[in-house]
Simulated assay, not measured.
Amino acid sequence: MLDFMEHVQLAFYDASHWNLDNSYGTLNATARALLDFQTPRGLRLQISSLAAPNFATSYTLGNVGVVDGSVSYLYSSLPLERKLKSSELDLHNVIRGYRQLRELRRPDEDWWWEIWHNGKRVDRRDTLLYGRIFLPQSRLEALYVRRLTPTRQLRVNAVSDSNLNNGGTILTLLQNDHGKYSTEYMYSTDSALIGLRGLYNFGPDPRNAPTAPTTSQQVAEHMHGRFSAGAELYYGLLNKSGGISTGLRFATLPNHHGFPYTMTLTLNPLMGNLSSTYAVKAGPNLALCTRFDFNFYSYESDLQLGCELWRRRSNTDVEWALKKLRPDWKRPTVAPDDDVSGILKARVDQHWRVGVLWEGRIKDLLFTLGASLDLKKREQIFRAVGIELQYSS
């Protein structure tokens, strides 16, 4: 489950019209959400508040080994209107699960952002500032995000920790999103790493305005999925080493009448790693995912299976499936979160390592209860058990 500050950052991206899914870094976001979820350890409490539309605070306390915690603050120049109270927010917005790609949005024109007063431009670029300190380790994390233009964004992450080389590191990302394609330029002070990655979407270009409404509608009706291809290249100037990867993704769009699904294939030719994933949303309550990894240098392979099951107060699986197969079939609609009481996640790999997670809401509290198990170690099956509680006002 996303913590409060992560949710606030997503609200900033939505308010500033930035599409996180149109990036090579999120090519495998669906598989990671269904297979790579973290199980909590021990007990952790988080109390947060959106004190004003532009300012948020969060306090965390845990007992993993020793008592530890963190204090974080966030400022957004753009007022955030999304519901962030734990008793009101939609669970679909804070629980990582199957990600349905949206239609590509035409980027704003530069002049749309201009604000004039008495013959002078008075508009300012949207900015987000975030800081978090961990106690008693005195580890400091910071984030700076600034929208430079409607298609460009600057993101700077910094970490200060005495256990790291040179006492910390800074990662800078210059991101460009033109709808049809996106690019990212990266620099990290760790090993003086520089990198470049990009993603290209096949199909209609959202930047081209339709010449006739009828033609545009006909094209949209035939575009039920999106095929994307991307690549990443990076090199460390200090350690004289680099890497390269490439990937493909096909995902159905909201106008697809069948079951939504996502397929990806990624390749790292230098390391010899090949990874393929397939995820399908088999119903409004159920999503399934598989991932197969293979190394063609060592011939080693790995297989993972995962699922998520939403628990609802009424069973609508059959109704939803019929609606997908027969779009003209109607049923009463409800709000996205009206009948949701929680979600169960589970994964297992070929070594019989199992992860189980139960997330939901009780009154005004969000909870995450999880455990990781190793079924081959009969004397110590449970590897970790924990619970996290969140409250925000």
Rank of each mutant, 00 (worst) to 15 (best):
D3P: 01
F4W: 03
M5I: 08
E6W: 14
V8H: 03
Q9R: 15
L10K: 12
Y13N: 11
W18Y: 06
N22K: 09
L35Y: 09
F37E: 03
Q46A: 11
S48R: 02
P53D: 08
Y59A: 04
T60Y: 01
G62A: 11
G65F: 00
V67C: 05
G69T: 08
V71S: 10
L74I: 11
S76M: 11
S87D: 05
D90Q: 11
L91Q: 01
N93T: 11
V94F: 11
V94P: 00
R96K: 13
Y98I: 01
Q100K: 04
E103V: 08
E109I: 04
W113G: 02
W113S: 01
R124L: 13
R124E: 14
D126C: 09
D126L: 12
T127L: 07
Y130Q: 10
L143W: 02
L143Q: 13
P150Y: 07
R152F: 04
R152P: 00
Q153Y: 07
L154P: 03
N176H: 11
Y185K: 05
M186G: 15
S191V: 07
I194S: 08
D205C: 03
N208E: 14
P210L: 04
P213L: 02
T214C: 10
Q218C: 10
V219P: 09
V219C: 06
Y234K: 00
Y235Q: 03
Y235N: 07
L238H: 14
I244Q: 10
A251Q: 10
F259L: 15
N273L: 05
N273R: 02
L274T: 00
T277M: 01
V280S: 05
A282M: 07
L286K: 06
R291E: 04
N295E: 06
F296E: 00
F296R: 00
S298V: 00
Y299F: 15
E300F: 01
D302I: 04
D302G: 14
Q304G: 14
G306D: 06
E308F: 01
L322I: 07
L325E: 15
V334T: 13
D339S: 09
V340E: 07
I343P: 05
K345G: 01
A346M: 13
A371I: 06
S372E: 12
L373F: 04
D374S: 11
K377T: 12
I381A: 06
